[in-house]
Write a protein that binds this DNA or RNA. Structure first.
Lengths: 206, 206
DNA sequence: AATATAAATGAATATTCATTCATTTATAGA
DNA sequence: TCTATAAATGAATGAATATTCATTTATATT
C-alpha cells in the first residue's frame, strides 16, 4: 500500500484494525494488573483472541509493543492536558485548568495513566523527548508570563513544578491506590481538589 | 538452633550470614537496574556467588524474597524517618525534620528507596499494614497537636499529606531520575529544599 | 578424631517464554 | 470468477525460567 496504489492497483487482504486495538488494550490491562512480567505474548494473544504470530505483524517485538503503548499514552496525555489551555492565561486560571485537565485524563483513561506510571522511569522505554516538547514549551511560557505579571514569585522550575503538580499527583495517588494509608476510601472530587488548590496557591504568593 | 541449644548440644554447620546479605543486596540492585522481570534466580545466584539452591535456604521462593526485601526497606525507612522526631514538636520544626530525615534516607539508601518506589503499589507485595502503624500514629498525633496549637489549618489528612510530602517527593524524583524534564541536572541540596519548604509552609497558614 | 547436623551445592526437571515459519485465508481489483 | 497480495494462523523451536533433589561439605559438640 503506497501513494500509487490507485495506479498499480494491488490486491491485498486489509488489516483488521480491531485486532490491533484488542492487542493494545489487553496488553495495557495485563501490565497494569500483573506488572510487566505478567505480560507474556501467548497469554496476550489469547486474551486478545488472536494468534501469537499475529502480534508480530503489528509489533516488531515485545519491546516495540511496550514503546508504542507508551508513546500512544503520552500523545493522548498531551492532547487532553493542553485542551483549552493557553500560556497567556492568568496563573491561577491556567494552573487550575491544568489540574482539571489532568484529573480528566486520569478519570477517562485510568489504565493509560497507571501504565504510564509504571514505565515513566523504566529503562525499557526509549524516552524520545521530542514528543513532549510542545508540552514543555507551553508550560515554560506560562510560568514566564506569570512571573512577568507579578502573579507568582520566581523560583527554580523544579520547585515550581513540585509544589504545583507534586501536590496534585499525590492526591491522585491517594485517589487511585493508596487505600491502606490514611482513610481507606479517599475520592478526589473537584471540591476537594479545589480546597487543596487554593492552599497550594498561597505558596506562590509574593 | 533454639533456646535449648546449649542443653541438647546439636552439632550443625552454621549459616554464612554474608551469603544471605549478598543475596539480598544483589537482588535489590538487579531489580532496581533491570526491573522485577530482570531478576532471575540463576542470575541472582551467580551475582551473589552462590548456588541457586542456596537462595531457597534463606527464602521460600521468589515472591518471599521480594516480600522480605520490601519489609526490610520499610523497617529501615521508618527508623530513619522517625529519628529525633516527636509529635510534640512545633509544626514547622517537626515537618522540616521529616524532610531532612527522608532526604537522609534517600541519600543513604538510594537503592532501597528506588526498590520501594517500584513496589509500593504492586500486587506482588503482601502489604502488612502492621509494620507502618507506629509511623502513622506519630504523624497523626503530630498533625493533631499542630492544629490544636493553631499552627496550621485543619484539613483532610490526604490534602495535608499531599502538600507537605507530595511536594517533597516530587523534588526527590527530579533529584533521582527525571533528567529529561526541565533542566538536566537538578541536585536537591538542603538549601533548595529549604526554599521549597518555606514556600510550601505558607499553604498551611491560617 | 568421630559424629551428627544442617548448610551448601551442581545438575536435573518440567514449564514457560519470545519468536519464527510453512500454510491457509480473506479480499481488492482484473 | 480468478488472481495476486498480505493478513492471519497453529504448531514448532530453542532458550530461559523457578524450583527440587541427591550429594557433598563444614563445623560445634562429644
Amino acid at each position: 500500500m503506497n501513494e500509487y496504489s490507485f495506479i498499480f492497483a494491488p490486491a491485498m487482504r486489509i488489516k483488521d484494525e480491531n485486532k490491533e486495538k484488542a492487542i493494545r488494550e489487553k496488553a495495557m490491562e495485563m501490565i497494569v494488573q500483573e506488572g510487566f512480567d505478567g505480560l507474556s505474548m501467548q497469554k496476550l494473544a489469547q486474551a486478545a483472541g488472536v494468534s501469537p504470530a499475529t502480534i508480530y505483524i503489528y509489533f516488531k517485538n515485545r519491546a516495540d509493543l511496550l514503546n508504542q503503548l507508551f508513546n500512544e499514552v503520552e500523545e493522548t496525555f498531551t492532547k487532553v492536558t493542553l485542551a483549552d489551555f493557553s500560556p497567556e492565561m492568568s496563573f491561577k486560571e491556567g494552573l487550575w485548568l491544568q489540574w482539571k485537565n489532568r484529573l480528566k485524563f486520569i478519570i477517562d483513561y485510568p489504565t493509560h495513566y497507571r501504565f504510564h506510571e509504571q514505565f515513566r522511569n523504566s529503562p525499557l522505554i526509549n524516552h524520545s523527548d521530542i514528543k513532549i516538547t510542545p508540552f514543555k514549551e507551553n508550560m515554560k511560557a506560562f510560568v514566564h508570563n506569570a512571573v512577568k505579571r507579578g502573579e507568582m514569585q520566581k523560583v527554580d522550575p523544579e520547585i515550581y513544578w513540585s509544589i504545583a503538580f507534586g501536590t496534585f499527583y499525590s492526591l491522585v495517588r491517594f485517589h487511585l491506590h493508596e487505600k491502606s494509608m490514611m482513610n481507606n476510601d479517599f475520592k478526589l472530587t473537584e471540591h476537594k481538589m479545589r480546597l487543596a488548590f487554593e492552599m497550594m496557591l498561597k505558596a506562590f504568593k509574593i
